[in-house]
Design a protein around this nucleic acid. Structure first.
Lengths: 206, 206, 206, 206
DNA sequence: CATGAATGAGTCTTCATTCAT
DNA sequence: CATGAATGAAGACTCATTCAT
């Protein structure tokens, strides 16, 4: 039987030295991915840039896929952390406050390392992507759902699942596209306002 | 100067036999792409499925990239044609009519071959993608811009470029995600209504 | 600017094992070249005969061209070394001694591996040849020029450049052709004498 | 049993139209060979440049090798014709007249199309070369032998075969190298004189 | 006789992965 | 644990040649 290729890192770095090695590997991966693109990101090239041997790389990651997965998880976590913390802080804030803050947070999250975000989203083969990304997405969807339920009396659309879907996709895709294709928009508070407006008007009908 | 790898098909099929061959090749490519994914789409595999020799494939397409480009163009054209025609028909229709129709058209366009659309959008290496996709996008953006200008007295947001950007990304991404991730939404007129609402409320503030 | 395909070996063999590998590769290349000809000298065939995997071959040589270049350099060096050392030893010897010795040395140099010399000179695509070959040629021309200048008072022809040209081409081509087409000549001291005569009479008019 | 690949043109052009076709093919071959080199000289490319279909090319030449052979024969014949006629005219001329004339003729012959001569001599795979070239060479050697025998009483070297060998290789290689590497020599009567001197002094010891 | 679409064996080359040291 | 030499399956692509029309 063909077991699915493990995507789990081979060993959790327990000593300091290994932790450093793992970090170096991921750093090298991110660097090559952003500067040279996915198809220059060979395991040998990554190991070289990380300053270790290819053998050592495979000591920590059972295959290339797991390397990409680890990087995506790391990146997702960074973004999710930002958004989550905002969302939690704003749990009791009304829509008019929370939505613009959320938009601002998502834009900021994407702006951390937009090129990496893009490569991770666009160049890495699908099979290696879905799992990690969805985990983060789902978590955020859950938080967003909780927030919307908390303020449900002020919200028009009744189908919560659909509303969460519409909200999260819209924010994500607008912020992502803006960062990639219209960097000028990002530094422009008008864009934040417009996106916030789009969502607020939809939610409140006012 | 480093010449870019040509993406132009090698020869226009002139006889009937060759036209069939080209069609068979593109059909095989689409099939393998949707059923097995991009990295199973080797030129040899495609030729085999098309029932021709690998040599014949290269008679019509100078390299793998051009094959993908041709398929994307074909697909983009199909989608763009649908949306464009709708947009032109609706040029004089008010927002309340036009927007829902547009949403419906975009969903329908994506539903033609959603898996192919997804693969084309997500798995094919960036370099081979951008050009074709953007051409279609820009055309639609232009039509959308013209429509919004036509009805500008009823529209609140003043920055036309940004409005077009927000509208097109939002429709595209919501319809795309829905078709891929929530097929149940697609056959559900509520989704269309909600998306239309999102956009209409934003545009009209009413 | 279009970078020329690198002809530089990929890595200098640092460990003993790899040094052996590189030698095995070159040995296999020479063998196939001499026994089967250039168009049987595929990289896969070479690797197989060297008893290594094709991957290992490409670890040391970035492409086929560099393999050929390395072999030519090795071979040129062997020949050039022989001739050069003779020419330096004979710097103060008069024409009557030096010329026959030179002829003998050139014949001996060609006789080391005549078939390889032939293949390297005649079958390998031009582009891969010129550089290596000319380097050796120029060096020898320089030494020959120095020698002729040293004995210029005994030499009739006045145009030194032309004389060097005539001498070197004549010796080279006669020895080469003899080794390839008339092996019987090679083991025959009469041939050496005749060639020496040809050159001596020309230089001294006596 | 593996029959040797025929090198004989498939049919002698008997009608005018075919003769023109064959000429067009050879002309195209020569042109591509001189302008683009041997490895751009694919049969398809040749047919295209000749303005005929690849199928027609194979009507006249059973394989690529026979094409090259035909071109070499044509070229050899042109050169041989020049040299032969000179040699026959000069049969009764003394060495002092005949040798310089011969040298001049050989230089002129090489200057007809030096690049083609070079490609034919250096780039075309050995297997396809030898036969044609040797035929011409042998013929000239025979004529030269006859001439030397006619004047044997004035000639010092006694081994006629060796003398013919030395003479023909020397003239050939010096003229060839001069045309390719030192075009300036060619238009310079001093070079002719020096080469003639080289040979005359050798033959006459005077 | 001409055409040109079709063939497919064979080429160079890459890169994830293993394993002896 | 680290090293890096070695592996080899697999991919993109070429080109001499054939054959149905």
């Amino acid at each position: 039987m063909l077991r699915k290729r493990s995507t789990i890192p081979r060993k959790l770095p327990q000593q300091d030295r290994s932790r450093l090695t793992v970090e170096a590997i991921l750093e090298a991966t991110a660097h090559i991915l952003t500067e040279e693109g996915y198809d220059k990101a060979t395991t040998n090239h990554i190991a070289e840039r990380a300053g270790i041997s290819i053998g050592s790389l495979y000591q920590y990651f059972p295959n290339k896929e797991s390397l990409m997965a680890a990087l995506m998880e790391q990146h997702s976590n960074e973004i999710a952390a930002l958004v989550e913390s905002k969302l939690q802080d704003l749990f009791d804030a009304p829509l008019e406050i929370a939505i613009p803050e959320l938009v601002r947070a998502v834009i900021a999250a994407h702006a951390i390392n937009p090129r990496l975000h893009q490569v991770l989203n666009e160049e890495i083969p699908r099979s290696e992507r879905l799992q990690q990304m969805q985990k983060a997405d789902e978590h955020i969807a859950k938080l967003l759902g909780a927030y919307l339920r908390r303020w449900s009396d002020r919200i028009h659309p009744q189908n919560l699942e659909m509303t969460v879907f519409i909200l999260s996709r819209t924010v994500e895709s607008l912020c992502h596209s803006a960062v990639i294709e219209h960097p000028s928009f990002v530094s422009n508070s008008q864009f934040e306002q417009e996106v916030s407006n789009l969502l607020l008007l939809y939610l409140t009908r006012a």
